[in-house]
Design a protein around this nucleic acid. Structure first.
Length: 308
DNA sequence: TGCTTGAAGGCGCCAGCCGT
DNA sequence: ACGGCTGGCGCCTTCAAGCA
């Protein structure tokens, strides 16, 4: 622990080494492995829609039409979100999750679809993949953790998944989890408070180097917005955490291009929100009692290389 | 241009239910 | 008793409209 410097140092390292625009760790560019299931289901949906349209034009018997509504309803499954009808649900002020449980509303939406949209039978694979790509962000949940683990593995920190291994190894890293490294277990084994604001909120990683333990929360943000501000608040709250055990440190890790904005030397006065966040972070870091860290990728790498 | 507000939806996990 | 299914929740990120 001798070589480690104060938290403002790593904050400055982070400022001086911004995140790259493109970070391969967060690319999700593999082709959807279940694309065939998507195509099959979407094709069925479209064929049924065509049938329904014809039946209605010919004023067929109600019970016959009903059968096809039923069939369509069954296709509103896991592979329906890339279908035009699946997307149209969102245009009707609702979600597929809700409509899956509400057949009558589903029929209403289907009727509007037939009236307001073009019905054809084309299912281009490239379009389906495009909609999946559009949702790539939702698959990034674990990627931040993985990126940090990769950095740690390179620095000889082994990934462990039991307390025995965690205790035995001098240098290692463990992910918080509901079964082994849950909040209660961490509190008990490390004899710490771990007083996160939300009782059930789990942080991300436990990093051990001999007696020193870093408890890290990682976030990846490329843009701002309502939900992001809550995420930043969460990271700031971690800076406030205190332990009597002097070997425990909390680390708020933020990467992605929003991190650059927050760390930028000059923030225009108009961006009040950003200034406020930045001031809050700096206030905690300047507070002599605070031994917690705020870092981006470069800051974190420096911290790890200093930690011997 | 930036902030605020409100939203979608993928994924993982778990408890509880149900059929065998 | 057991194993699979399902609903609900937590977590994570991005998007968009309206307002100042």
């Amino acid at each position: 622990m001798k070589n480690i410097q104060d938290n403002l140092h790593y904050f400055r390292v982070s400022q001086e080494n911004p995140e790259p625009q493109l970070d391969l760790n967060y690319f999700v560019i593999g082709k959807e492995p279940k694309i065939k299931e998507y195509l099959k289901n979407i094709k069925e949906i479209k064929e049924t829609l065509i049938t329904l349209k014809k039946l209605k034009e010919n004023e067929e018997r109600k019970d016959v039409v009903e059968k096809y509504y039923q069939k369509l309803f069954q296709n509103l499954n896991d592979y329906s979100n890339c279908s035009e009808l699946g997307c149209f649900v969102n245009a009707c002020d609702t979600t597929r999750d809700l409509i899956k449980k509400d057949f009558e509303s589903f029929k209403t939406i289907t009727d509007f679809y037939l009236k307001k949209r073009i019905v054809d039978d084309k299912v281009p694979e490239s379009w389906v993949q495009a909609i999946i790509d559009n949702n790539a962000s939702r698959k990034k949940g674990k990627l931040g953790e993985n990126k940090i683990i990769k950095i740690l593995n390179k620095a000889d920190y082994r990934s462990v998944n039991s307390w025995n291994h965690f205790n035995d190894r001098k240098k290692c890293v463990a992910c918080f989890s509901k079964d082994i490294f849950d909040n209660d277990a961490v509190k008990e084994k490390l004899k710490i408070n771990l007083k996160t604001k939300n009782q059930d909120k789990m942080l991300d990683l436990l990093i051990k180097n001999k007696k020193t333990i870093l408890i890290l929360e990682a976030k990846h943000l490329n843009t701002d917005g309502g939900e992001q501000n809550k995420q930043i608040d969460e990271l700031i709250k971690i800076l406030e955490l205190k332990e009597s055990n002097q070997n425990i440190f909390y680390v708020s890790f933020l990467d992605g291009t929003y991190s650059n904005k927050l760390l930028a030397e000059s923030i225009t006065k108009r961006s009040r929100k950003l200034l406020k966040q930045r001031k809050q972070v700096e206030r905690y870091l300047k507070n002599k009692n605070s031994r917690n860290f705020w870092v981006n990728t470069a800051g974190f790498e420096k911290l790890i290389s200093d930690l011997r």
